[in-house]
């Protein structure tokens, strides 16, 4: 078996009494493009947070590039985190700085403090930043103030930051949530371009987009994996079950991991039709 880029072993995640993830196990191979789909609150964001190390699981282990990220400390942990780039739903840019500084933030993991501070006064590696922005089609915004850009442009800046960071793994949390349909295709195209030669994990609501741009789709519901299939094999029934609002907790908790298609009950389908 080849070494997985990302591996979760019976991971559970709890916030107080709320269970965000329950006994999730999965492995993602290097170079794979994976979409996480599922209703709001299914645990997609939690899963991504575990993968970039911003959260630790209550139980189980998370391995990034073969290392248990939550057991590392200090510089070794940071070195690993540098290999994971994240595109956030809210972009998380430093809004009152120029675009170039936000793009250069991708270098920060490699730069010493003095260089980072000097770059704020005298921007460093301008060409790398310009190239990254050019790939995303906003090269002319290099020196614009970030908070004067449109939402879509800001998202491209966030992508450019990840591009400059040059990680092995790219995570994207609902990148098309607040974008109109035409733009969402652009965005997904950019993301899969970004994910070329990289592992890509992206959480989405739109299954069509997932099927178009990803090799594999993982369906999450109430903290469990409902299905985990190559894009082409995901069926309409599975999707209906995934987004079925009426399915009770009890029924959901009876579902076990990847075997769920066998356990689908007719009643679920009927309810969804109502």
């Amino acid at each position: 078996m080849t070494r997985a880029a990302l591996r979760l072993e019976s991971v559970s995640c709890q916030f107080g009494s709320v269970v965000a993830l329950q006994a999730v196990s999965l492995a993602i191979a290097p170079g794979e493009k994976v979409a996480l789909v599922g209703p709001s609150g299914a645990g997609k964001s939690t899963l991504l947070s575990l993968l970039n190390g911003s959260m630790s699981p209550s139980q189980g282990s998370v391995q990034v590039l073969g290392k248990a990220i939550n057991q590392l400390q200090g510089s070794r942990r940071r070195k690993l985190q540098r290999q994971v780039g994240t595109v956030y739903q809210q972009h998380q840019l430093i809004e009152n700085l120029s675009v170039i500084h936000n793009v250069n933030a991708g270098h920060l993991g490699r730069w010493p403090l003095w260089k980072a501070l000097w770059s704020l006064v005298w921007p460093q590696q301008v060409n790398a930043a310009r190239q990254a922005l050019a790939q995303l089609g906003i090269a002319d915004k290099l020196y614009a103030r970030t908070d004067r850009l449109s939402g879509g442009q800001q998202q491209r800046v966030a992508l450019a930051r990840v591009l400059v960071q040059d990680p092995k793994i790219v995570l994207a949390d609902e990148p098309v949530a607040s974008v109109d349909p035409a733009r969402s295709h652009d965005m997904m195209a950019l993301l899969s371009h970004l994910g070329k030669n990289r592992t890509l994990v992206v959480s989405l609501h739109d299954v069509v987009l997932a099927q178009t741009y990803c090799d594999r789709i993982i369906g999450l519901r109430q903290g469990r994996i409902l299905f985990d299939l190559p894009s082409a094999q995901v069926s309409a029934e599975q999707l209906t079950a995934l987004y079925d609002l009426e399915a009770s907790d009890l029924e959901a908790s009876n579902l076990e991991g990847n075997d769920l298609e066998a356990d689908l009950k007719p009643s679920d389908l009927e309810n969804s039709a109502v």
Binding site: V121, D140, K141, L142, Y143
Partner: peptide
Amino acid sequence: MTHSRRYRRRSLLLSFCSF
């Protein structure tokens, strides 16, 4: 590239001030 021109001016001014 008006942005970049203005930016450079800004950087220059900033460094001048700190100097």
